[in-house]
Design a protein around this nucleic acid. Sequence first.
RNA 1: GCCGAUGUGGCUCAGGGGUAGAGCAGCUCACUCGUAAUGAGCAGGUCGUCGGUUCGAAUCCGACCAUCGGCUCCA
Length: 640
Amino acid sequence: MVDNKKVKATLPDGSVKEYPGGITLLEIASSIGPRLAREALAAKVDGRLVDLCSTLERDASIQFLTFDDEEGRQVYRHSTAHVMAQAVEKLFPGVKLAIGPAIADGFYYDFDPEEPFTTEDLGKIEKEIANIIKADLPFERRELTRLEALALFRDAGQDYKVELIEDLPEDVPLSCYNQGDFVDLCMGPHVPSTGRLKSVKLLNVAGAYWRGSEKNKMLQRIYGTSFPKKALLEEHLFRIEEAKRRDHRKVGAELDLFSIQEEGPGFPFFHPKGMILRNELEKYWREEHKKWGYQEIRTPIILNRALWEKSGHWDHYRENMYFTNIDENDFAVKPMNCPGCILVYKTKLHSYRELPIRLAELGLVHRHELSGVLHGLMRVRCFTQDDAHIFMLPSQSKEEIIGVIEMIDDFYKVFGFFYHVELSTRPEKAMGSDEMWETATSILREALEAKGMAYKVNEGDGAFYGPKIDFHLKDSLGRTWQCGTIQLDFQMPEKFDLSYVGEDGLKHRPVMIHRVIFGSLERFIGILTEHFAGAFPAWLAPVQVRVIPITERHAGYARQVEDALNEIGIRVEVDARNEKVSYKIREAQNQKVPYMLVTGDKEVEHGTVAVRHRTKGDLGSLSLAEFQDKLLEEIGTKLY
RNA sequence: GCCGAUGUGGCUCAGGGGUAGAGCAGCUCACUCGUAAUGAGCAGGUCGUCGGUUCGAAUCCGACCAUCGGCUCCA
């Protein structure tokens, strides 16, 4: 140890401090302030994540991480996962440990126990976690060689850890951490000691395949979360409860939008009010597509086997398809709209002057999904894609993709959605040459970059015929669902021998874009329902106005108001039931009707309506004409 | 499909080896009412389905179906 040497630490604010070499980061944090020493969980030294007990040996920039930093939270949750593993190992001796990472709002750890865990076990494990936290055991890092690590975990009978080590590159330095008598293979870093962890809650148990492959053994995964303050944990749990209240399956039943019945698992039924939503969305969709130069088509749901063989679906997508037999010939129910659309393109010869040709279709597709994945409207077995196929010159592809990106952005803005974008590349089971894939992928990348969009790359997640840009929206619990997608395809034009006549009078091969904006009407309605918690903007609301006569003698006037609103295309209902005003208002509120018009003696006398808005409350009296203008304006601008 | 949990009137749920109970909703009646639940009465269930154990099953056992939370897969 060099005792006299000084090291310089550059802090995030730019200030530089000098310390004796070999000082620990925790000591540095203390020198800056007691609060930082208390709240720091780990640190970054020249951008590298390290433990607070590690030492500073040379000049470096350092940054302390607290729970307020994303990376700090991850360290905190990851350390909690280790403590949970320690608790599980103590309560269930012989349990094998797999992996235990931090995730978005918490952590999980995968175990291979003798018996699956029960919900009651979670309580016991939580108690043991509390004991470990109370004991305030330090997290100690130890570096070891591959051989040492193999010996350690092999002796401990930790087969999964051994497998992990064996799969790591030979030259990577290994480390493990222990707290008390518990040891785990881990890169770290960790919080200094178990006492740093405060409020831990285990949320649920679920099965999960080892290394995410269904070919492997199914392990038992315990999900949990942790916070440095009890109040933060409670707030988080409250948010989860709140989100469940927005669940589209619950809201959809309450507002009578749709149902899913035993008779048709994954095949949703749309009720009258749900159909209003759908139809309004479709109406908007048609208007926009007209503006963007699309033409609408409709193709059959059932087409013959030869077509699906030609398109490659027979080879690449069969396990997701439904089949039938007509006059002793094989047919399939379409899982995608593209082959049908291609047949439309092929009905005549096309000139380069016509391109791009944009053919849109609200196409009902059926896909066989595993029973365990069905989820309300979000994941179903039949759905309507707001599909379109663009046939174009290769030189038009980037520009067309940019157009679609802009169009999707326009659509999502109307609903106030935030989204994130992923670029999905060549999957294992794919058609076409590597060069084609490379060209297509780089065109998509260039389009994204031209729009300055941040995106994440999703390796191997493309369609079997081409790479794609996916647009993901969030549901009420923060789970993301792919909605919009843009796929660039050089394969189908080849397979179907598509052509256009060029300037030179010769036949050339066009390129195709497959794209959806809503994704599927079903999923989009699910997202929409959760986003607005059922309180749809007026333009979408199944019932826009409910007229509430105060007593039976005001019912006649209420009917007049109803007629007047109907006349201008407003969706209106009269609640003429023999109930108190407050009762009818409560019900209209629960049904999330945007406007309630209370009509009593005063309104009858002056020809007005007393307006109540579902969130703004009592807005006072307006003449019927004024109210009509305001509402039409709100609907026209699609205000949300 | 796999792991775990759940399944009782339209909804939310209680009960539990001796052939079902509440609240809300529905219907009827009374009240004729001014911004989130007026009162009274009535009606409503092969306890997911099929099979087994039993003198007797909604209750115990098994299989299946569906749903929920995940895994895997995808719009």
